[in-house]
């Protein structure tokens, strides 16, 4: 755990995260617009609510779209050993996780519409007590890792 893991996730992850950020921002934007509309029709609602909402939206948009994805991508690393999986993530709080292969209960890959557009997939690793994720790996890579981990995890387990 002294050294950080070596493998990075796919670079397109940044684009995928940016799209997600755009979508959230659009929802925020709709709410802000609704606040303005409401202020126009009802006297008791101040325009200030709309102004505050729109400024929050803009700040949120800038942060989640232009700052966070890059930092996140830069931090995200993983490494698959024969005996364990090693993951690092987190922008402010950096978390390094060790999951031993013999504790892995099952491995899944998951792909939403945004990830699919970039040919990416998320790898989910579950133990009996915890769940871990490696987001945005290339599709083939994720599938390979899934098979590799499930093969490695197929070690005789003592109870749970």
């Amino acid at each position: 755990m002294r050294e950080q893991p070596t493998e990075r996730i796919a670079k397109d992850a940044i684009k995928a995260w940016q799209i997600t950020a755009h979508l959230t921002a659009i929802i925020f934007l709709i709410v802000s617009i609704a606040a303005f509309v409401a202020a126009y029709f009802f006297d008791f609602i101040s325009y200030w609510i709309g102004i505050i909402a729109i400024s929050i939206t803009i700040v949120e948009w800038i942060i989640t779209c232009f700052i966070v994805p890059k930092l996140r991508w830069r931090r995200w690393r993983y490494q698959i050993y024969d005996q364990e999986i090693y993951i690092q993530h987190g922008i402010i709080v950096v978390t390094r996780t060790v999951v031993p292969m013999i504790r892995v209960q099952h491995v899944d890959t998951e792909q939403g519409p945004i990830l699919k557009k970039y040919g990416l997939a998320t790898l989910q690793i579950s133990t009996a007590a915890t769940k871990h994720e490696i987001p945005a790996l290339l599709e083939e890579e994720a599938a390979d890792l899934r098979d590799q981990i499930s093969a490695l995890a197929r070690v005789e387990q003592d109870d749970v």
């Binding site: 755990m1 987190g90 402010i92 709080v93 950096v94 978390t95 390094r96 996780t97 060790v98 999951v99 031993p100 504790r103 133990t127 009996a128 007590a129 915890t130 871990h132 003592d158 749970v160």
Partner: peptide
């Protein structure tokens, strides 16, 4: 043999001060 996974967490102040938090998951 009963530990399911282990995490080490640090934020930037921790890094500066050579401190870390650990989290051990059991079932």
């Amino acid at each position: 043999s009963r530990i399911q996974s282990m995490q080490k967490k640090q934020h930037f102040l921790h890094r500066k001060q050579q401190l870390a938090s650990i989290n051990i998951a059991i079932l």
